[in-house]
């Protein structure tokens, strides 16, 4: 059977979850993988909880339903942990990566995290220090790359550089690259 890696993103509208899902798709494209990235469709309101999905595979992906049992869950906003069950549908070995100032061990004490592989990364702080805006998606991608080993870090950096340098000046590109790298380095729970 075809191996498909399934990722679910939890965020609030405006935090860049859809952009992050797209960036992972672009990385997959550059690595000659097959991919699918889509939001849970509906009215988009800034601040409201939203969900987005990514599928990755070595072969064509022909399943289009929403992801029920994700292998990876990425949480862009720690306050969502009290609002939605981000672990819904996940199995025993599912990976949960949370944007949090708390350590992975502390996040892991939450009852719903029991039996999951929990990681944490202070993505908002990294974003504020690098790109100067509270958009935590790029550090979280760095953390995902570290935890999952889905793509080589250099490949991700190359892709981020290529796609951003078409639109942004050098300092913005460098800030984003720094954000990815710090996310990769500062994720806890490894």
């Amino acid at each position: 059977m075809q191996e498909i890696t399934e990722i679910r993103w939890h965020a609030r509208g405006g935090q860049g979850a859809v952009t992050a899902a797209k960036m992972v798709a672009e990385v997959a494209l550059s690595q000659n993988k097959y991919f699918q990235a889509f939001p849970e469709y509906g009215p988009e309101r800034s601040g409201a909880p939203i969900v987005a999905f990514t599928r990755l595979s070595d072969g064509p992906i022909q399943i289009y339903s929403a992801i029920e049992h994700p292998d990876y869950v990425l949480v862009l906003d720690p306050t969502l942990l009290d609002v939605v069950d981000v672990t819904a549908g996940t199995g025993e070995n599912a990976v949960v990566i949370v944007n949090s100032e708390e350590d992975a061990a502390d996040v892991g004490t939450r009852p719903e995290m029991s039996g999951k592989r929990v990681y944490a990364v202070p993505a908002t702080r990294i974003a504020l220090e690098t790109i100067k805006r509270a958009i935590p998606n790029t550090p979280l991608i760095g953390a995902l790359v570290r935890v999952s080993g889905l793509f080589p870090l250099e490949g991700v950096m190359d892709e981020v550089r290529d796609s951003l340098s078409k639109k942004f000046p050098e300092e913005v590109v460098d800030a984003n690259l720094e954000a990815v790298k710090r996310g990769y380095e500062e994720v806890s729970g490894i």
Binding site: L29, Y34, F35, Q36, F38
Partner: peptide
């Protein structure tokens, strides 16, 4: 093509 399911999903 199917609305959202295909129209809004990014793929290769």
């Amino acid at each position: 093509i199917d609305g959202f399911i295909i129209s809004g999903a990014i793929g290769p």
